[in-house]
Amino acid sequence: MSDEKKQALEAEIRSYVGKPIGPEVIGRDPVNEPMIRQWCDAMGESHPAYLDVDGAKGTVHGEIVAPPTMLQAWVMEGWDMHEGYDEPKNEQHRLHKLLADNGYTGVLGTNTEENYTRYLKLGETVKALTVIDEISEEKATGAGIGYFITTKTAFENQDGEELGSMSFRVLRFKPANPQPTASAAGGEEAVAQKPSRIKPPMGHDNGWWWERVADDGVIPIQRCTSCEKLRHPPRPMCDGCGHQGFDSIDASGKATLTTYTVVHYPQFPGYEYPIISIIVDLEEGERMASSLIDCEREDVKIGMALEAVIHEDDDGFKIPLFKPAS
């Protein structure tokens, strides 16, 4: 996009800031028991104040109230939403279409903040006015380059009494790595697969090691067949004597913790965070990287005794991990 075109686009999107997206929305139904009960069913909610008069009396509420996170549900558009918004129906849609037409085709909800002034009572009608509050500078994000758009909604009841507020931030971006989309022929193979931990590539120098982990359920340690020097990670020649032949011994699995880090960010699909990633000294003298399981963060101590477990992932991949020695 040329600088001029970009400036024109920026000027146009900025003109939306401060605009209401449309007229005030008035909830179709007042706060009512059937909708609350349907909500509680779906959420697995059993809160007494939401579900029955007697139960509610035993709480601070004293009467039936609606679950707080249901606030927005009272003013949702409902059925009409299934038709989509190819033709913009309000200012928010127009802003999004403008960006989409300029290549910012991706959209991602990133943050919400809801403030509940009080819980809603049966019979109240909810009214909502939404304003386009803020559009960020163009930002580089993991998803691609784009703009964060924040809308703010004020909720009140039929008497103009304040009920709460909501801000909602979405990223409108140019996809850096376009998502695979199913072809018109219905090719489901184009669909994303459930992620799992990154697998080692299996080459001449390392494939045998992972095969032994999977087939024999052990941690193998490579051994030179000439001078019997052990080495890990595996390499194609003995750095002691230059011999290429090797076999392996089975590690006992007993180890001590050499060092560790607790990994919080960035988070990769296929891993559960935080991860306690470790370096261990195997009893046989070699060192290896792994991760620690079945151990609380505060119980991790450098020098602690560990034992190996061959862990099997949901996808069947086997990997040696460690846990505190029993």
Partner: peptide, 21 residues
Amino acid sequence: SRYVTDWAGPDAIVTRVKTKL
């Protein structure tokens, strides 16, 4: 929300929820 109030008890009032998606 129900995860939090199931733990905290029925008289716990939720006043604000901030979420990162």
